[in-house]
Every structure is written in structure tokens, then in C-alpha cells.
């Protein structure tokens, strides 16, 4: 094993892991506050990707603006889907919320099929994304480094917000004990809206890098990142923000190791192995790698 292969492996794990960490973070933000496993999260990403596609193809906007609007689209869909579909359920059972998020996901997918096209569309990617660069003899596209950098910046900002702003502290409090937080004057609607907005924001960022990697957008594309998010969240711990980030990187690591070690005849079963590991994780360690402090009580 030489250093070059090791470095290549590390870059792969870190870039994939960064993307996965952002995906799972978006899921956990909502889960922490509402205890909702949001099945429609994948469609938040799809919406952003479509906006990237439309703006990239039909307008001459500079890349930065295109990205900005893509992210804003994610924020908007997160915010409005909560307002329209989830808010009426606040007082109902968790299962009703879960089923609703599944229904919202189906509705959005069908709307994309109907309104745009069932076929996949090529998303234009800025040239510098795919520019190959060389680090210590390892050649890698620039976007791999960009995602790592973006994630580092985003995580730092999020940590600062969550640690030092009153809103962030209140969100952490609310995800530990929602009722008590409300008793201290923390408004429930605000907390939930902010959680969905952050979730949508992260979905927007993910959409940029996801569509850059796959080069296309199609109505069902949300499924894969959603599943990745689930796994990462489960590995890291449903109740902990740092846990979900760790889970993203661990998932990328396991996935890369499986790709390298599985015999080619079994490679097509990689996802099955991955999910089998997840199930084993859930059974053996339902609280994940990092255990957050939480109460089983629900949003009321």
C-alpha cells in the first residue's frame, strides 16, 4: 500500500463523507425538533437541483447567483412544506407525520414528472468543478475539494450559531425537551420553521454538489440521498447533530471500503450490505455512535 493510494482513498472518503454529512445534518435538524423522519427531504434536494437546471440552462446568470437561487429554492420548499403539510399535524401522532411526509414526497415526485419531465435532464456544471487538479501525485476533480471546503465552512458557521446565538441555544434546548423550552418562552412555530429552513438550506447545498457529481436531475433523484441520509443518521445517532456528521463520514468510509474489498460479483449487492450493516447497527446500538440527550416526549 503506498501513500498515493492512501491519499486517494482519503480524498474520496472525505469528499463523499462531507456530502453525506450535510445530507444527514439536514435530516437531523428536523428530526431533533419535531421527531419527524422527513421522507420528503430528498425532494427538497430535487427542487433545488431543478432550479439549478433551469437557471443554468435558460439564463445567463453567473454561477454564484445560480447557486444562491438553488439554495433559496431549497429553503423555500422546506419552509412552505412545513407550513402547508406538517403544521396541521403538530398535535397528531408521529405516524401521521411520517405518512404525511411520505405523501408529500410522492406528490412532489409526481409534480416533477408532470410539470417538467419524467426523463432526466442534464444539469450544467461550471467548468472549474470538473477541472482536474493534482495533489501529491493524486489527480482529483476540483469539486471534491470544494465540497470538503464548503462543508468545513458550513459546519463551522453552524457550530457558531448553535453555540453562541440565543436562537441556536434555544434550538438545542428545544430538541432536548420541546415542552420545557416552550415554557421558557421559546416559540414552537419559530423553532420548527427554522429547523425546516436550515434543512432546506442544507438540501440546497447538497443539490449543487450532488448534481455536479451525477450531472443530471430527474424526478426520482431524491431517493438515493435520502437513503444515504438515513444510514448516516442511524450510524451517528438520531439525536445528536455532531453524531449525524460523524455518521456521514463513517458511511463514506464503509462504502469506500466495501467498494474496494467486495469481489466484483458481489459489488451490485453493495447497497444491500450497507443496509444490512445499518440494521445491525440499529439492533445493536439503537442510539447510534454519539448519544444525544433527549426525551421521548413529542412536540405538543
Amino acid at each position: 500500500m503506498n501513500a498515493q493510494i492512501l491519499l486517494e482513498f482519503a480524498i474520496n472518503v472525505l469528499s463523499m463523507g462531507s456530502l453525506y454529512a450535510l445530507i444527514s445534518l439536514g435530516l437531523v435538524f428536523v428530526f431533533g425538533i419535531c421527531k419527524l423522519v422527513n421522507y420528503a427531504y430528498g425532494e427538497f434536494i430535487t427542487v433545488s437541483a431543478y432550479v439549478l437546471y433551469f437557471l443554468g440552462v435558460f439564463t445567463g446568470l453567473p454561477w454564484l447567483l445560480v447557486f444562491l437561487f438553488g439554495i433559496l429554492a431549497g429553503v423555500a420548499v422546506g419552509f412552505f412544506s412545513e407550513l402547508v403539510a406538517f403544521r396541521p399535524f403538530r398535535e397528531r401522532s408521529l405516524d401521521a407525520l411520517l405518512v404525511t411526509s411520505f405523501a408529500v414526497s410522492v406528490i412532489l415526485q409526481r409534480l416533477f414528472q408532470l410539470g417538467i419531465s419524467p426523463r432526466s435532464k442534464a444539469v450544467p456544471v461550471p467548468a472549474f468543478f470538473n477541472m482536474n487538479i493534482q495533489i501529491l501525485g493524486v489527480i482529483t476533480p476540483l469539486r471534491n475539494l470544494l465540497i470538503i471546503g464548503t462543508t468545513v465552512v458550513l459546519l463551522t458557521v453552524l457550530v457558531l450559531i448553535m453555540k453562541y446565538t440565543t436562537l441556536g441555544v434555544a434550538m438545542r434546548g428545544a430538541s432536548e425537551n420541546f415542552v420545557t423550552a416552550r415554557l421558557m418562552g421559546v416559540p414552537a412555530n419559530l423553532m420548527i420553521s427554522v429547523a425546516f429552513i436550515i434543512s432546506g438550506f442544507l438540501a440546497g447545498v447538497v443539490a449543487i454538489f450532488w448534481s455536479a457529481r451525477t450531472g443530471s436531475v430527474e424526478p426520482m433523484m431524491g431517493g438515493t440521498p435520502l437513503l444515504i441520509g438515513f444510514i448516516a443518521v442511524v450510524i451517528g445517532g438520531m439525536h445528536s447533530l455532531p453524531g449525524s456528521v460523524v455518521g456521514g463520514y463513517v458511511y463514506a468510509f464503509i462504502s469506500n471500503v466495501l467498494s474496494l474489498t467486495l469481489p466484483s460479483s458481489l459489488l451490485s449487492f453493495r447497497d444491500a450490505f450497507m443496509f444490512a450493516i445499518v440494521i445491525a447497527f440499529l439492533v445493536l446500538k439503537p442510539e447510534g455512535l454519539l448519544r444525544g440527550n433527549y426525551q421521548e416526549e413529542r412536540v405538543g
Binding site: 438545542r172 434546548g173 432536548e176 415542552v179 420545557t180 440527550n293
Partner: peptide, 28 residues
């Protein structure tokens, strides 16, 4: 202000942060 039964402080938050949530809506 209700001080709930069983205290219900936020366990992973520091004392400072717990108090800050108590002062939610106040300027610091």
C-alpha cells in the same frame, strides 16, 4: 414562569445556556 416538576433542565446545555433559554426574548 413555570418551574416544571422533575426540574427538566436541558442536560447537555451548560448552566449559562439553560439560563439563556430562560431569558428567551430578552436582550442580553
Amino acid at each position: 414562569a413555570l418551574v416544571p416538576e422533575g426540574r427538566d433542565i436541558f442536560p447537555s446545555l451548560t448552566v449559562e445556556e439553560n439560563l439563556r433559554i430562560g431569558a428567551f426574548g430578552r436582550r442580553l
